[in-house]
């Protein structure tokens, strides 16, 4: 069983289900990518794993423990980090304060972790005193990821981290995400830029209408003619 797994999840926001028997999981130190057409329930699946959605069926397991009943906040304490797609930084606060708030639940000295984040994203060290709201889109995403890393999570969940950034910045962000995975953190992310994302993925999930359509390694999915034709634009 995977380190983190949402198993046969069924549920939605209101009475209608968005997810139908959907399963996504990720191993330590690996990158799992969820792709699919618009409205496929990619973000919903992610939110379900993070506990922002009530599941009617299925369960979420982390490190062999059933965490289905935990609230998102409790899951943060359990070692999950979540980067929402929008409004993912404190715009009025400086970069450094953003990171400090990320470490809010920690009582120990978190300066080492902050140094790690600065090593990962050197530009943030330069701009540590600047309000996060004044940074460019790519830099903001770095702050957002850095904030989530401050709890030293075992799992990092990213909801479309490259939405709205230029292709160069996207490549750069993906490189950093690979670096983070190398630290032994499990990474689960939803991506619009399916090809590039599957390129770096150890595991890929193609969702359609809230259900698993294809599941394989990123490489295999990219090679699969059916997947290419239907979801990757040939």
């Amino acid at each position: 069983m995977s380190f983190l797994i949402g198993e046969s999840m069924t549920g939605g926001y209101g009475s209608a289900d968005i997810l139908h028997d959907c399963t996504i999981g990720v191993e330590r130190g690996e990158i799992a990518v969820v792709v699919g057409p618009n409205g496929a329930g990619k973000s919903t699946a992610m939110k379900a794993v993070f506990g922002m959605l009530n599941l009617r069926q299925g369960r979420v397991m982390m490190d062999g423990q059933d965490i289905t009943a935990l609230s998102p906040q409790q899951r943060v304490h359990q070692g999950m980090g979540f980067v929402p797609q929008t409004s993912n930084v404190f715009t009025g606060m400086s970069v450094q304060e953003n990171l400090e708030m990320g470490a809010f639940i920690r009582d120990d000295d978190f300066l080492g972790t902050m140094e790690q984040v600065f090593d990962l994203f050197p530009i943030l060290k330069q701009k540590r005193r600047q309000p996060a709201g004044e940074l460019s889109g790519g830099q903001r995403q770095q702050v957002a990821v850095g904030r989530a890393l401050m709890t030293q999570p075992q799992v990092l969940m990213l909801d479309e981290p490259t939405a709205g950034v230029s292709p160069i910045v996207m490549d750069e962000l993906f490189d950093r995400i690979i670096d983070i995975a190398k630290l032994g953190i499990a990474i689960l992310m939803v991506e619009q830029n399916a090809k590039q994302a599957l390129n770096i993925a150890d595991k890929g999930y193609v969702l359609v209408q809230g259900a698993n359509r294809f599941t394989d390694t990123g490489e295999a999915l990219l090679a699969d003619p059916q997947v290419r034709q239907s979801f990757l634009g040939g």
């Binding site: 993912n88 404190f90 708030m101 904030r147």
Partner: peptide, 21 residues
């Protein structure tokens, strides 16, 4: 710390909750 967490909460309530405030 408490003062900063208040600013964070007023800045972005959902993210503050995610951060464990």
């Amino acid at each position: 710390r408490t003062g900063k967490s208040m600013r964070a909460y007023s800045d972005n309530r959902d993210l503050a909750l995610l951060s464990g405030i």
